[in-house]
């Protein structure tokens, strides 16, 4: 095994770097820039059973050391993803992809996951119970331990692929949600999704985002995310994927020291389309400098 290899829920990864859902589309835009096969994997755009436009624009705003988004799960729907996006992805990505799934009812989560379960290209199901930008679904499943457990249970019934629950930071105690999904058989958890925020335009005196609120991401949230990864890694036995403001190879190592088995990179991909590639290329040098032989040995190493 190489220095960067890790294993995520039984599936080997060449490295722990995973572009996060919503910042990487279905891979195509980045495939035009670099060979996607250098990635550990990537988590594709949050997919729902039905096609969605998402929220009205403007749905992007600047924030101090970060950004707000209120995209609201725009996606072509799971059937089109399977019929068009996965075949197109197959022509240039030869690893298993992480399928990010969202929904508005327990049944919808299960139906979408059941369809993706049949796809050999899909390695993991990342079940997004934490989108802050949709109404009557999304985050409401991730802020109530009972609802989070119910989604987990329903999804586990329809798939044998590893199920990773993506958790919301917009809760009193994220470890409570993590334990609830673990108790229903979740194979892993990923965190954090974005933190709910807003901005007001001083000239128009109106919220910048048409949706009023949006999710905060970027370097601003890194310390918050790291703290939550630390807490969750101490509360559950299943693997934790750390994310939230990761921008550099050093950030990846910091997340892993807190207990992350793999690390997702989100907003930084939007600012720097080569961010994930650069992080992977810089990891060995940073590891040399820090005296790290291989990444597996540092998971939870600061605990």
């Amino acid at each position: 095994m190489g220095r960067l290899n890790v294993e995520l829920c039984g599936i080997p990864l060449d490295n722990p770097v995973i572009p996060a859902s919503g910042t990487f589309g279905y891979g195509w835009e980045f495939h035009e820039l670099y060979d996607l096969n250098i990635l550990g994997t990537f988590s594709f755009k949050g997919t729902t059973r039905e096609p969605r436009f998402g929220n009205p624009t403007p749905r992007i705003a600047e924030a101090p050391s970060g950004m707000l988004n209120a995209v609201g799960l725009q996606n072509p729907g799971v059937e089109k993803v399977i019929a068009e996006e996965l075949p197109r992805l197959k022509t240039h990505f030869h690893k298993q992809v992480m399928a990010n799934v969202s929904g508005f009812s327990v049944e919808e989560f299960a139906e979408t996951c059941a369809l993706l379960d049949k796809e050999p290209q899909v390695g993991w199901l990342e079940v997004n119970i934490s989108c802050p930008n949709v109404h009557g679904g999304g985050m409401s499943f991730g802020t109530d331990p009972k609802a989070a457990a119910a989604v987990t249970k329903a999804v586990k019934k329809v798939t044998r692929k590893p199920v990773i629950l993506k958790l919301s930071p917009n809760v009193m105690d994220i470890t409570e949600i993590a334990r609830a999904v673990e108790s229903e058989g979740a194979d892993g958890v990923s965190l954090i999704n974005t933190l709910m925020g807003m901005r007001i335009d001083l000239k128009s005196r109106r919220p910048v985002l048409k949706n009023r609120t949006g999710g905060l991401s970027g370097p601003a949230v890194f310390p918050v995310a790291l703290r939550m990864v630390w807490d969750v890694a101490g509360a559950v036995k299943i693997p934790v994927i750390g994310m939230g403001g990761v921008s550099t190879a050093e950030d990846v190592i910091e997340m892993m020291l807190a207990g992350a088995t793999a690390v997702e990179v989100g907003a930084q991909n939007l600012r720097d389309p080569f961010a994930a590639k650069t992080i992977i290329e810089e990891l060995p040098g940073v590891m040399d400098r820090l005296g790290i032989e291989n990444l597996r040995e540092i998971i939870g190493g600061a605990r």
Binding site: G22, T23, F24, G25, W28, E29, F30, K45, F53, G54, T57, P58, R59, I60, A61, M67, N69, V71, Q74, N269, L270, R271, P273
Partner: peptide, 22 residues
Amino acid sequence: EERMGCGFGACMGCTQRTKEGY
């Protein structure tokens, strides 16, 4: 013109409805 996240098609921040889809 629209507020953009990435500018290269990845984030879906600037989508508009058209007669030929999003």
